[in-house]
Amino acid sequence: MLATMNDIQEGYGFEIVRRQDFSDVTYLLEVRHPLMAKAARPGQFVIVMSHENGERIPLTIADFDRAAGTVTLVVQAVGKTTREMQQTCQAGAHLHALVGPMGIPTHIGDARKVVCVGGGLGVAPIYPQARAFKEDGAYVIGILGFRNKDLVFWEDKFRACCDEVILCTDDGSAGMKGFVSDGIKQAIAAHSDIDEVIAIGPPVMMKACAETTRPHGIKTMVSLNPIMVDGTGMCGGCRVKLGDQVKFACVDGPDFDGHLVDFDDMTRRLRRYKEEETAAMTRWSETCRMESPQTTL
């Protein structure tokens, strides 16, 4: 897998080659970037700018295909930018900026039995890790959590690379009724020799996972996705507290020991642009009703 200058993107933007909708809020974008597809490793993320006036948002890499030269991102439409992208990011459209892979790749170490936990959108970025552990010969238990059965995606991909899959939904409409932390309890009850738990999802979910494993002393890694601008360590906006240390998620992470992360601090910091986000959302929804949505960028 030699890197050559020919792999470097020419011309404007980064082409979206495939788009798939998992639900009315979750969608997948497969973007052409051969060099990034070669470089990407599980646990890394990218920063995306959908258009020239857009903001830079971090998205964890959900998959990469080195042969096809593409990276896959799974996005949840929650704010102005991600809802706008839901309209504009169709196959054939281009992203204004795409940079990465960023962050320290997940350490696929000596763990022989691992639990890979994904909650909601976090199911996507945990996938390459589950696959990498499986390829490394580990026994992999996948735990996937969704609110209900309509939001479930990639169950088949996990079944193909995991030794066991525990599907959890909040309302019990698919798999077991309960949170992923209940799934972890079930896995721990069935296996006394779990070496590591890796959890990706909303902060509240990762915190619950860390608290579930803490009494058992099982190493628990979480992947943090705080607010970022550059993603290269330059702005410090993504700083998180680990015990008495301060780390930058973009260059010191994004993977950290879940038993050390101060999730309450992180959750509070994630809300710091709440007002602006709401204002942008309102303004955008209003203009949307007046204009027909763009289909290309």
């Binding site: 030699l2 890197a3 050559t4 200058m5 470097i8 993107q9 980064f14 060099l35 990034m36 470089a39 890394q44 900026a97 795409l98 940079v99 990465g100 892979p101 960023m102 962050g103 993603g231 290269t232």
Partner: peptide, 21 residues
């Protein structure tokens, strides 16, 4: 000028010399 390129992560300094010419 090649923007959107995080050297070190997209390719390494060693790759620039050894592979990219």
């Amino acid at each position: 000028f090649q923007c959107n390129t995080l050297v070190g992560r997209l390719f390494t300094i060693a790759q620039m010399i050894d592979e990219m010419g």
